[in-house]
Structures are given as structure tokens and as C-alpha cells.
Simulated scan of single mutants.
Amino acid sequence: MRCPFCNHAESQVKDSRPSEDGAAIRRRRSCPECGGRFTTFERVQLRELTIVKRSGRRTPFDRDKLARSVSIAMRKRPIEPERVERMISTIARELESIGETELPSSTVGELVMKQLKALDDVAYVRYASVYRDFRETEDFARFLGEEGLSEPEGR
């Protein structure tokens, strides 16, 4: 594994253990060149997934991109990072278990929405506002009414 600090081609594994949810191996590594220490995760990948965007463009499924979009929705919410990581792993496993190598982006979006709704209502609405392209406050009100989420008192 290449060192992220000095770009040295090799690093040494100092410690390996399963991640919290058992879906990955966490490895602590050290660079013999610069002494930098870093962590890597090794996960099982059943198949290469391609996401088909609304425009028809195809991109490889990127777990890190999924994690970034979820973390934006979860920003400043009182949810433990381990729960978020488990949720992302669950979504990735569900996508792989569908059995198709090409999946519409809407499939990913709906899975994220389902998982976020179960985890945190605010993050769910935040994600939905981008995913469903809300333009006005009425879009939020309509969505909240459709989802059975109540609006705050006095509004």
C-alpha cells in the first residue's frame, strides 16, 4: 500500500482487526520511509457496480462518494459515526445483492432515503431536499406532509 504522506511504494501493517460491524478489516500501517502512520480498510466486493445517472452517463459505484453525501446530510446530527458506517455498509451490500452490474442512480437514492428515514428524520429531509431537488419552502412542506412528518408548531 502506497504511503499517503510521502508516496513511498510500500508500507508495513502494524495491526489488523475486524471493523465494528465485521464487514471490513481495519489495518494500521506505517511507512518505513517517512514514519507516517495511517489506517486502511479492506472490504469484500462481490461485483463491480456501475451507476446509471439520470442523464444516461455511467459511473463506477463509489462507496466514498456515498459516504460523503450521507455525511453532508448527517452533519451536526447526534448520530454515532459507527451507526453511519454500518448504514453505508448495509446500502452497499444491498446494492451488490440486487444481482445487476448496472443500477439506476434512483435505486441508490431510494436505499439511502430508506436508511436515513430509519436513522434520523432531519438527515432524511436534508438528503431528500437535494435528491428530490426542492426549490421552494412549499416543496419541504409538501414532502413533510406526504411522509407523515409533522411540521414544527407555530409555522
Rank of each mutant, 00 (worst) to 15 (best):
E85H: 09
S55V: 14
I88C: 08
E80T: 12
T90S: 13
S89Q: 15
S97F: 10
I51P: 03
S97G: 10
R75M: 12
S69R: 00
I91G: 00
I98K: 13
D64N: 07
T90F: 08
R63G: 06
S97L: 12
E80L: 09
R68W: 05
R77I: 13
M87G: 04
E85P: 03
L95E: 01
S69I: 02
K53V: 13
T59Q: 13
V52H: 06
F61C: 02
P81A: 10
V52T: 13
E94T: 10
F61R: 00
M74Q: 08
K53Y: 09
R63S: 12
T90E: 15
R63M: 10
S89A: 15
P60V: 09
R83T: 06
V84P: 02
R75A: 15
S89M: 15
R57S: 05
G56I: 06
S55D: 15
F61D: 00
A67I: 09
L95M: 10
R68V: 03
S89L: 14
I72D: 11
S89F: 14
M87Q: 00
M87N: 01
G56D: 00
I91H: 03
S71V: 07
G56F: 11
E82G: 12
K53C: 08
I88Q: 05
I98T: 15
R93D: 15
I88M: 06
M74H: 08
R68Q: 07
R77K: 11
P60Y: 09
A67R: 04
A92W: 01
S55I: 10
V84G: 04
E96P: 06
K76N: 11
E96Y: 06
E82M: 13
A67Y: 05
M74P: 01
I88Y: 04
R75L: 14
I88G: 01
R58G: 03
M74S: 06
F61L: 03
R57D: 03
D62E: 07
R57A: 06
P60Q: 14
R75E: 15
F61Y: 08
S97K: 12
V70A: 01
R83K: 15
E96N: 08
R54N: 12
M87W: 00
R83H: 14
S97P: 07
